[in-house]
Design a protein around this nucleic acid. Structure first.
Lengths: 250, 250
DNA sequence: CAATACTGACTGACCAGTCAGTCATTTTCA
DNA sequence: TGAAAATGACTGACTGGTCAGTCAGTATTG
């Protein structure tokens, strides 16, 4: 097994520096831009000195990320050309390298910024006193609205597609998205069991069973909806009926 | 949206002929080999004239497919180099082109030969009189043994990964694997409902709900098992408990 | 007028697909 | 039967296009 990760694979080539895994802002490339690392500096318009540049910088960065998102989603990691990303972002190719160390760094940042924020947003609003069923309904609704019906579904598929080839990406996604997501689901399940609404206690052990139809929905929409449309919301509701023991009916 | 499919993308290039979709043996490249199309000619050793050549030919073809499988699974479509496939198969690069029209043809053939045969094998043995539960158990067991625990799981993930970029592949997979698989599941469900073992009649409408945990298992094993092992068989059994209304217990 | 941001032509590696030539097997025919 | 001819299988150096990443130079800004 040769198993070389995809990058640009410096075969026998010259220097072409490499680094273990992700980008971890703080890399220290030759020149580093103001807004390059973190701190989006949320001064919208104010008068902060040098805020003008910072704002424009943040804007450019965002444009690159957005463009990258579309390109990567459409073609996958390897087949995406940074020239295209640059063109789509209305920027010269070199500019990308002012904001990101290399192609992979852009890729990871992209995934990060597309999925992480939504994980917290989708978690239950903790509404004590509400029925577990209601909380699950809300969960499903949010999931469909925020993921299945947005380009975030594409990003999720992208992670599934490329994850196996990017251990660092898979690990990150597991930690930041899967663990947190399943954790939230498990809490909901326990809540439902405690309230006597859910009788299948195994679900607390395998929250994946609750998430599975959502995964199915995301994948189906991406690959097969053209051949056989699937009403994700309805399917997920039906799944809730099963979890909550609502037999029969439609 | 430019949306060009990955291939080698003859950008503005010269002639470089292309064709609509798959390979469809019968393409008619310049020269065509004996065993190139179908009919493996199962004469093991016998005396059929010219069987020697045919046998060796089939062997080579198989070696190429096997090598391709490993490479594509490890790197994905675009990042796989045919030079590597050739080396792994113990063959010169040119030889690949004697058996397959191009990279994509090899890729498709690969997926085809890895998944299609197993679909029929995994379908229920129609054992009339048996409880639906028993049939489902058997189904799950076969699925785990034949897919989750084999490299076929990798192939399945490969389809999920590349399907979006290969409409022809997605369509083929939908027709030959998904439709047939879900069809078999739906039959089982109806059987279970008819026997009064399954009460959730929605399942007949959404057999995807039954398949979803299997999909989850395949994906989890590929991406996250390193971080959090998942006992697929146990999870799928737990899922059956839910479908069959076996409340509580573990 | 620095300093900083940006540009895009350029380099060097890379790789799908080709094809002229070599090797192996089978057929033909004396 | 044995040798030459014909057919088929295989090879790998080569071509032409591609693309990540660089950097000298230009623009913009404070």
């Amino acid at each position: 097994m040769t198993m070389r990760d995809p990058k640009t694979a410096p075969r026998g080539g010259p220097a072409r520096q490499r680094r273990g895994a992700a980008t971890e802002p703080g890399a220290k490339p030759r020149r580093r831009k103001s807004g390059a690392a973190a701190e989006p500096d949320e001064s919208g318009e104010g008068g902060q000195p040098s805020s003008r540049r910072a704002a424009k910088s943040a804007e450019r960065r965002a444009a690159i990320v957005a463009a990258g998102l579309q390109e990567f989603v459409a073609r996958g990691y390897t087949a995406t050309r940074l020239d295209d990303v640059a063109r789509r972002a209305g920027v010269a190719k070199g500019t990308i390298y002012l904001y990101f160390k290399d192609k992979e760094a852009l890729f990871q940042e992209l995934i990060r910024s597309a999925l992480v924020p939504v994980v917290s947003r989708i978690a239950p609003q903790s509404g004590e006193g509400q029925s577990a069923r209601a909380l699950f309904e809300q969960f499903v609704q949010t999931f469909v609205r925020e993921i299945v019906e947005t380009e975030r579904a594409d990003v999720l598929r992208l992670v599934l597609a490329e994850g196996a080839r990017f251990p660092a990406l898979a690990e990150f996604h597991y930690r930041e998205v899967v663990l947190r997501g399943l954790g939230a689901i498990e809490q909901l399940i326990r809540y439902g069991i405690a309230r006597g609404e859910i009788h299948h206690t195994v679900l607390a052990k395998f929250p994946q069973l609750v998430a599975a139809p959502a995964l199915m929905a995301v994948i189906w929409q991406g690959l097969f909806s053209k051949h056989a449309p699937l009403d994700a919301a309805e399917m997920l509701r039906a799944h809730l009926d099963i979890i909550f023991d609502q037999r029969g009916a439609t």
